[in-house]
């Protein structure tokens, strides 16, 4: 491996991604404004369905571009042992980390919005507004096409520079860090299962939240049934995703303070609230019980948002701080 050549090829790849993806990234905030307008002006509502479908299509095209970028990056991002000079492996960066998290959440929700059937007309405005926020956030905050994977590329470029330095201590330190990240983070099955499972759950919970708001407005149990159907669909991957995190955390975070850490606490709280919601709704028919169910559903979604944000706010093992 020639570190300078690898770095130059990756830089070229990033530039190509920017050239292809920048128009998509710029289109997202504009589409978000359009979605909010169509959702809030009743006369324009008939156009909301096609607009949501068009947004899903644009996001999907963008995801294909990102997948291509990751595939090329996998070819280039090799890890070489300084002892033997041999390639020990390639870094398979998942498509839902760092700058791409909000993008994947937006894509998931957009695809779900396209397939909503029950109470579609009532749910679509609320879902479109959440989708607009996610799309705007993915573009303006995430910047997956123009500033891709800042943490990974920062570490990998640092590794390449260390390898080019010829300083054995520096080379070995950088190699250990990069190989550790490859084995216990990027290339683990966990990282390829846990985040997408949670983003799928987040998408369904967003729709369940909107259905709850419609239930509060219309005061009718039919909307609660819709909310429940989406919530139960999300509860499965949420539970599976969180459970799968446990053995991985024991191995990957050995020696680190992760049990009861901020993000873990918030995730547990979110799961507990959705579990409480699914229990409470069994008695929806009791007088005034629907208010408790609605309150739990709204609270659970707010905690979901806090759980997502906790990664960026609360320090700890599961934090990007």
């Amino acid at each position: 491996m020639n570190p300078a050549v690898v770095q130059a090829e990756i830089a070229q790849l990033i530039q190509t991604l920017g050239t292809i993806g920048a128009p998509i990234q710029a289109l997202l905030p504009a589409a978000a404004v359009l979605l909010v307008a169509l959702a809030t002006v009743p006369a324009w509502r008939p156009l909301l369905g096609p607009a949501v479908a068009a947004s899903a299509f644009v996001l999907l095209i963008g995801e294909i571009v990102l997948a291509w970028f990751h595939w090329r990056l996998y070819d280039l991002a090799v890890v070489v042992s300084p002892d033997t000079g041999r390639i020990v492996g390639r870094v398979a960066v998942p498509l839902w980390v760092e700058s791409e998290k909000l993008y994947v959440w937006a894509l998931t929700l957009a695809l779900m919005a396209v397939v909503i059937r029950r109470h579609r007309q009532e749910l679509l405005p609320g879902v479109a507004i959440i989708l607009a926020v996610l799309m705007a956030g993915a573009s303006l905050w995430g910047k997956p096409f123009t500033e891709p994977l800042p943490s990974f590329l920062g570490q990998y470029f640092g590794y390449l520079q260390a390898m080019a330095s010829g300083d054995p201590a520096r080379m070995f330190g950088a190699y250990q860090g990069m190989e550790g990240a490859r084995q216990f983070y990027y290339n683990t099955i966990y990282m390829w299962v846990h985040p997408p499972a949670l983003f799928f759950a987040y998408g369904t919970f967003a729709i369940a939240f909107v259905a709850t708001l419609v239930m509060v407005r219309e005061r009718h149990s039919a909307y609660e049934t819709t909310s429940y159907r989406w919530a139960r669909l999300g509860y499965l991957p949420l539970t599976a995703g969180m459970l799968l995190g446990f053995p991985w955390a024991i191995i990957a975070w050995q020696g680190e303070s992760w049990w009861w850490s901020g993000k873990v606490n918030m995730s547990i709280m979110m799961w507990l609230l959705y579990t409480a919601l699914l229990h409470a709704r069994l008695y929806l028919r009791r007088r005034s019980m629907w208010k408790w169910v609605a309150a739990l559903s709204i609270l659970a979604f707010l905690v979901l948002l806090l759980t997502y944000l906790a990664t960026y706010i609360v320090p700890g093992a599961h934090s990007y701080l």
Partner: peptide
């Protein structure tokens, strides 16, 4: 709910 509150206070 109380376990959730505990998690929140812990955070």
């Amino acid at each position: 709910g109380t376990l959730g509150v505990q998690s929140f206070i812990g955070t």
